[in-house]
Amino acid sequence: MSIRVILPQHLRNLAKVPKEVVLNVGQPVTMSSLLDTLEEQYPVLKGTIRDSSTSLRRPYVRFFALEADLSNQDFGDPLPDLVVTGEEPLIILGAMAGG
């Protein structure tokens, strides 16, 4: 499936990509499989969204879609249908904190 992912500015600059990237993710589409694909396509992003040693979401990274916060959703849960069909993007962003 073609999944649309919006990346935060820091990671766009790091990966040298535009704001939105499209990933072809195999079924079932979960946060885990999406991030695996993202890191495979852009290896420079390894460790920036998930901690390299624990594979957990970094504390100040958030996942939003369909005006909902998916940050604490289990990585193995399916993503919403509208994200899976590409009608809506998954937004990855840095939490608002600091200056």
Partner: peptide, 28 residues
């Protein structure tokens, strides 16, 4: 590095004209 997105290691082979990323995994 940033507190948000962790550690990146950059390397240059031309005196800083350009940089590229190398491994950023520091496993204890």
């Amino acid at each position: 590095s940033t507190g948000w997105f962790g550690q990146i290691v950059q390397r240059s082979d031309n005196g800083g004209e350009s940089f590229y990323t190398v491994d950023n995994q520091f496993a204890y």
